[in-house]
Simulated scan of single mutants.
Amino acid sequence: MRGLWITAAIVFVVDQATKWLVVQYLNLKEVGAIDVIPPILNLRMAWNEGINFGLFSDAGDARRWILIGVAVVIIAAVLYWVRRDRMQGLALISAGVLVGGALGNVIDRLIYGAVADFLNMSCCGIQNPYSFNLADIAVFAGAIGLILFAKPQQD
């Protein structure tokens, strides 16, 4: 489990540091948009009050606490599953990536009332209207990693 906690801590710190750097230091919250490598990589400030792609963003303040609760339950379920099945190696790392990302977005909801999304990528003439953050990538990558690598340890 040590690998899970180290990975979760690294992902959490990197996520929060990038959010601070982009939102506060580069002042994206006021500037709104910064082109980095247009159109492939841009910074576009978006406060996501809902879930992916802004779903449930109009459900009021109760939604914030419900989404925090759902994230905490998911984190607890992943931790229970990993411990119960005595997962090792890449499964533990994947769980740590997922947990660190989920905690990063929970902290955003607690501090800002919404998740700070700022990465925007478009390509090949298709304009992507959505933004995301490193925690979103971590949750997705961690879930995929668990699907691929979660095998219980044999007794």
Rank of each mutant, 00 (worst) to 15 (best):
A71M: 10
L103C: 14
G104M: 10
I34Q: 07
V97D: 01
I126G: 07
A95S: 03
I75F: 11
F53A: 13
L110H: 00
R63N: 11
W5A: 09
Y25I: 05
W81Q: 09
L110F: 13
L146C: 05
K151M: 08
S131Q: 08
G50I: 06
R83K: 15
A138Q: 06
V72L: 15
F149Y: 13
G50E: 03
G113I: 05
R109S: 02
I147D: 04
G89M: 09
F118S: 00
A143K: 00
A91R: 08
G104L: 10
F132R: 05
A71N: 09
A59C: 06
M121D: 04
I144D: 07
A46I: 12
R83C: 06
D85W: 11
G32I: 08
Y130E: 05
G54D: 07
Q154P: 07
C124T: 07
W47R: 11
P39S: 00
W47G: 13
A46Y: 13
V72M: 15
L55Y: 02
M121S: 14
L146N: 02
F53W: 12
V78I: 15
L79I: 12
F118E: 00
Y112N: 13
A143S: 14
T18S: 11
V97N: 04
L90I: 03
W47I: 00
L119Y: 13
V139W: 03
V14T: 06
F53T: 10
V72R: 03
I111P: 04
I40S: 10
A62H: 07
V97T: 15
V23S: 00
Q153D: 10
F132V: 11
D58R: 03
D58M: 05
M87D: 04
R83E: 14
A71T: 15
V73I: 15
P38S: 12
D15M: 06
V99W: 00
L26E: 03
G3T: 01
G50D: 01
